[in-house]
Lab assay of single mutants.
Amino acid sequence: SFNTVDEWLEAIKMGQYKESFANAGFTSFDVVSQMMMEDILRVGVTLAGHQKKILNSIQVMRAQMN
């Protein structure tokens, strides 16, 4: 498990989005775990492969939080 959203993004090789997530207010796992595709688009993730990777990881995160 990760301590910060930045660490999580690095771990899934999506570190290039750290600033975008932070600027959009997605700075805690409570918020990130609620993200939908529209949120991912809003933070500027436009590549389908990256969207899928982030969404898949969020689903895993949700499962671990319950």
Rank of each mutant, 00 (worst) to 15 (best):
N23P: 02
I12D: 02
E10W: 05
S28Q: 06
Q16P: 04
T4N: 11
A22N: 08
F26V: 09
G25V: 02
I12H: 04
F29I: 11
I54L: 13
E19H: 13
M61I: 12
A24V: 04
A24N: 13
F26L: 08
L41C: 08
I40W: 02
L9Y: 02
D6C: 06
L47E: 14
F2E: 05
F21N: 00
M61K: 03
V60Y: 14
V31F: 08
R42E: 08
S33V: 14
M37P: 10
S57L: 08
K18M: 07
S20T: 08
A63W: 06
V32W: 02
S28C: 07
N56E: 15
S20H: 13
D6E: 11
N3E: 13
Q51S: 06
M35E: 00
M65K: 05
G49F: 12
T4K: 06
R62K: 14
V5L: 04
N66H: 11
V45C: 04
D30Q: 13
W8R: 00
V5T: 04
V60K: 12
F2Q: 06
K53A: 15
T27W: 07
M61R: 03
F2H: 08
V43I: 13
L55E: 05
S57K: 05
V43R: 01
E7G: 08
Y17W: 04
M35C: 03
N66G: 12
L41H: 08
N56P: 00
Q51W: 05
N66T: 11
V60L: 15
G44M: 02
Y17A: 01
A22F: 14
F26I: 12
K52R: 13
L47D: 15
G44W: 03
F26G: 02
V60P: 04
R62C: 06
G44D: 02
F29G: 02
M61C: 05
L47N: 15
R62Y: 07
F2R: 05
Q64R: 08
S33I: 14
F29E: 02
Q51G: 05
V32M: 03
A22M: 11
N23F: 10
V43S: 05
S20E: 08
I12V: 04
M14P: 01
I40C: 05
K18V: 06
R62V: 09
E7P: 02
Q59M: 15
A63L: 12
N56I: 11
L41I: 15
Q59A: 13
T27R: 11
S57I: 05
R42T: 09
N3Y: 12
S33N: 07
S28D: 10
I54M: 06
G44V: 02
M35L: 11
G25C: 05
V45R: 01
D6V: 06
M14E: 01
G25A: 04
R62Q: 07
V5W: 03
L41A: 10
N23V: 12
